[in-house]
């Protein structure tokens, strides 16, 4: 049994244009591991959506990716404002993003739904005023 592989990323909250760096790097790493293109696509899109959310709403955060023989796990953690109503946030089309963010093509209210769509397991733990931790898993 081979060891787990772990990748750690700091997601910069200031630089909106460089958002996606971590996900693109993960995509590269997973490709080197020889995982299927569809698995790589699911993981990297789910992670990108999470990364963008942390930049838009939380001033950045950290992302930890673990690759095991059975699944790829993504942990996203931020100290942002938290999500008041998770059920509402999970609805397609619901967004609290600003007009400025929308003009860049984000804030369509599809981020969290996409994260759920592309992963086999997703759990959100959020406390208003404290931050948000999201766990996602994609089975290999």
């Amino acid at each position: 049994m081979s060891e787990e592989l772990k990748f750690h990323f700091v997601v910069d909250g200031d630089d909106f244009t460089s958002a996606g760096k971590a996900s693109v790097q993960v995509k590269k790493n997973l490709r080197q591991l020889g995982l299927s293109p569809e698995t790589i696509r699911r993981v990297s899109i789910a992670m990108y959506e999470g990364e963008i959310n942390m930049v838009i709403h939380a001033g950045g955060g950290v992302a930890d990716v673990t690759v095991t023989e059975e699944y790829i796990e993504i942990l996203l953690s931020d100290k942002g404002p938290g999500i008041k109503d998770i059920e509402q946030a999970m609805q397609e089309g619901f967004s609290t993003a600003s007009d400025n963010i929308r003009s860049l093509g984000f804030g369509a209210g599809m981020g969290l739904p996409n994260m759920k769509r592309y992963t086999d397991y997703m759990d959100i733990k959020s406390t208003v005023g404290v931050g948000t931790d999201i766990t996602m898993r994609v089975n290999i």
Binding site: T17, A19, I45, E49, A108, M110, G111, P113, N114
Partner: peptide
């Protein structure tokens, strides 16, 4: 043009038509 819609709906290999031109 909405990036999350594209990531949610576009298929691998699609030509993506858009008017959005920013770095993202």
């Amino acid at each position: 043009d909405l990036l999350s819609w594209v990531m949610g709906r576009a298929k691998s290999g699609d030509a993506w038509l858009t008017i959005m031109s920013n770095i993202n």
